[in-house]
Amino acid sequence: MTGPRLPTSSVLMTPPLLAILAFGLAPLTIVVVWSFWSWDPLTYWIKPDLSLAGYAAILEAGRWTVIVSTLVKALGTALLCLLIAYPTAYAVHFLAGRRLSIILLALITIPFFTSYLIRSFSWRLVLGRTGVLNTWLQDWGITHAPLEWLLFSNFAVVVGLVASYLPFATFPLLLSMRRVDPTFLAAAQDLGAGFWKSLTSILLPLTMSGIFAGFLFVFVMVVGSSTEVQMLGGAGASIVSVMINDVMRVANYPLAFAISTIVLVVIFGLVLIGNRIFGLASLFEDQSQ
């Protein structure tokens, strides 16, 4: 045999590396590169001429407001999810026994066996004019007419988004709590800390990586979501995915990719900042020190 033998490890590394290149990096590169090409509205044709027209078009027709409102929705949904997921993860990990924690985890996971479409639609039955919620509110005499803003509104969208993406916050939090030795909490208590003090001074700092991972997952999912807005949003409600879809219909790839690039840059920025501050990578480190 001639030539150096490849070590087994690099042979094993090759397929996953190729997969990452082919399925991850290559499409991303195309997206970024094409966003700087030009588009002819007469022929719907794209040409490899360097142009910032795609980015300029973002500023037209209120497109940037959709981007901003999407980011705001993503931020709000992610924070709401964390607010609900943290106590949930705490209960599952620290309070529930083995059996109960498995049941709780199942209850969190099982709704995900149905499609986003069905789940979003089911909120119409809850939030609509004659939906469950409005019926109850009137039956109990809390309101006298159905609340109109419950459905086809930002409220409905956020409810749908939180319901859809809650587990993406719950599971990273659970993962990070599993890494916290319960003796740390006992030690804090031993030194005089009550529940809230040990929560804020011990558990929260030690689960920061999980908090940020949960935030990021929900944030990214919301930025990429469309079903909830389409099913539950009011007239003219939009979100980045819907807008990109609209632009793609006229084959304006540079504009669609410019929007995507902006969103990508925001998310990458978040990841980098988060990793710097919260040590995201530590969530996946080996548990044994």
Partner: peptide, 20 residues
């Protein structure tokens, strides 16, 4: 009296030094 209000302090087997 909960642990945080007892005049007792503990050296735990795992030591439980706060890593952060």
């Amino acid at each position: 009296l909960p642990a945080n209000r007892r005049p007792v302090n503990t050296v735990f087997q795992s030591l439980a030094l706060f890593p952060h």
